[in-house]
Write a protein that binds this DNA or RNA. Sequence first.
DNA 1: TATGAATGAGGATTCATTCAT
DNA 2: AATGAATGAATCCTCATTCAT
Lengths: 203, 203, 203, 203
Amino acid sequence: MPKLGMQPIRRRQLIDATIASIHEDGFAHTTISGISRRAGLSSGIVAHYFDDKAGLLEATMRKLAEDLRRQLVERLARAGSPEARLAAIIDANLADAQFTPEIMSAWLSFWGQVRHSPPLARIQRVYRQRMMSDLLHAAKLLLPPESARRLAAGMAAMIDGLWMQRALAGERAKPADARAVAHGYLAIQLAALAPPAANGAET
Amino acid sequence: MPKLGMQPIRRRQLIDATIASIHEDGFAHTTISGISRRAGLSSGIVAHYFDDKAGLLEATMRKLAEDLRRQLVERLARAGSPEARLAAIIDANLADAQFTPEIMSAWLSFWGQVRHSPPLARIQRVYRQRMMSDLLHAAKLLLPPESARRLAAGMAAMIDGLWMQRALAGERAKPADARAVAHGYLAIQLAALAPPAANGAET
Amino acid sequence: MPKLGMQPIRRRQLIDATIASIHEDGFAHTTISGISRRAGLSSGIVAHYFDDKAGLLEATMRKLAEDLRRQLVERLARAGSPEARLAAIIDANLADAQFTPEIMSAWLSFWGQVRHSPPLARIQRVYRQRMMSDLLHAAKLLLPPESARRLAAGMAAMIDGLWMQRALAGERAKPADARAVAHGYLAIQLAALAPPAANGAET
Amino acid sequence: MPKLGMQPIRRRQLIDATIASIHEDGFAHTTISGISRRAGLSSGIVAHYFDDKAGLLEATMRKLAEDLRRQLVERLARAGSPEARLAAIIDANLADAQFTPEIMSAWLSFWGQVRHSPPLARIQRVYRQRMMSDLLHAAKLLLPPESARRLAAGMAAMIDGLWMQRALAGERAKPADARAVAHGYLAIQLAALAPPAANGAET
DNA sequence: TATGAATGAGGATTCATTCAT
DNA sequence: AATGAATGAATCCTCATTCAT
């Protein structure tokens, strides 16, 4: 009895099981049989819904990127000022949800593959470009073009660096700390890079 | 043929071949036979000098960390002031040598393993702690403890983030750009965090 | 092709091929690929049904012990007296089926492993204990406890020794000879160990 | 400096190390490097003194057989009567020295190979034939030919069976018990098989 | 839609053997 | 006489993929 509409359910089950497996078994020991067992399904199911293992891994990374993007878009929608938009980008990328062990293991593993997997590289590139675009757009409302570019580049690096240090440390990270450092960085940079005109007004 | 003194030569050959293989074939497709073929040796040689594949990978990551550490120590030795020491840390971690395709592939791959390989995690942790210690020590000569800690954390994150963005991008990165952003960050942070007393003196 | 009920068939095929390989190639040269080739199956099938080579070897030895035990139980079921039960134990352990070249090679090989393989040791121990228990039980119906113990120990040794000499000889053994020696031994021992009361009656 | 007369010393060292390795690592895990390491020598030495691994194993089994034969010959030399010669054969084959864990592991392992190694089979056959010859010779001084043959066959089986049960059991065996059973068997058999003439004398 | 039996290629590992010194 | 570096064949195991049902 071919149940209708199983596809999204099954895909979701398998993607979740993949993330769990990458975390628990490690990327190198993540196997189709391990994933399907975890999902309570048979091993053949992967070919059915994702063609092959590469397809499942790609879908998994895409899901991570989409979840993150969704969070970011929601926060941006609620942000009322350019400053708030920049803060939202920090808060989305360094949200608690990005620091769960499963998510950290998964992202770190995928990054380790990116240089040798064009499909994964593409997902990574698209997400990155969108975030840079958001950053730059907001920054340009506050700073001259060159300064805006510097701020965007600096913020992106800072966000990535903060996340990665915690992901590598393997300990229970405190996301709030990371966000605080990033917000502090943003404040200082904005103040330092703010147009002279604004500075002069203060005097 | 028990030629004496072959050990360091063979180990070096195999480690170099491992780095080359990770870059060219990808970490997942890096095999003992591929490595040994690249080194012009037989596959059994790996067991002879490193026990097993894990031992070779561990030695390879250690070599990367040691090379980097050596560069850092050399630059620190030539630095005459705390500010110069902080700059040296930037320059070592973001040196041109850290942006060759081989080195980027290798580090990124190892980072992808760190959460599931205690030996690799240890290498990573030791290097990281030393760098943080260097950063903190220099920062404390310029700033009050709390500010020094913030600066050190921020700089470490900025350095990692800048490096990683370029490693992930896969394009031919411009190390000098990364260094410039980092030095800019350092300058602004130092100015912003400098003790009020010093600021007041300037006025 | 998930044909149902293949498991017992496949397991049997592989176990039979293992016995054949031990006989023809020798235990040391018995390989998974040799076994599976003989069974007309692929090498991966062993992992599928027995996890690994050790599992297959264990199952093979267990099958030998179970076949032997089954023979013994059948003969015991048909034995009407204690004497007949003792004779049945001889006839089962020294049955023609125990002297085929394949069976002799297999048992001898497994015995050579027993001291270094706990799972094989366990199979061996369980079979041995059951046989000793059967022997002792029958002997106690005929003799005083101490004599019964001696008879049981002696018979077990005699049976093992007779079998093993022929297994080691490598020639075409005559099972009937072995059984005759064992039955002769049993008769003499019973007569010699019989309770004095019975002896006294004769005088 | 080619030391003279090293050959017997080295051969002995390697044979002893082989026995130790068979006991501790198991026959299947007995390797040339393991043996030579245990002997405090290099792995190449085996080729030097025994050509190859098979040669070393053969020499090792031969040594076991020769030690046993030597014990037997010594005891026979001290035996003053046919009965004493039969007892000596029991005592030599079931001497304490034959029940050390190392010796039991080694014999059992070699027996497991005998059916697939002509050289080992030959050593085994020669020892066995000599012992049978000794048994038969002594028995014929006491019994008519047919009875002598039966006694010899029975004694050989009994001796082998008693030894093997203990070797298989893996526990700490009590050699004295085995010898007592064998001597008991001998006594009963001699009494039962003794020529009628002798019997008549008793009446 | 879903299963899981079966395959067979791929790869890490082990190890006897060779041989220059 | 002795070493131990180096080889490469052999083998076990893993696992993605296929496919009949």
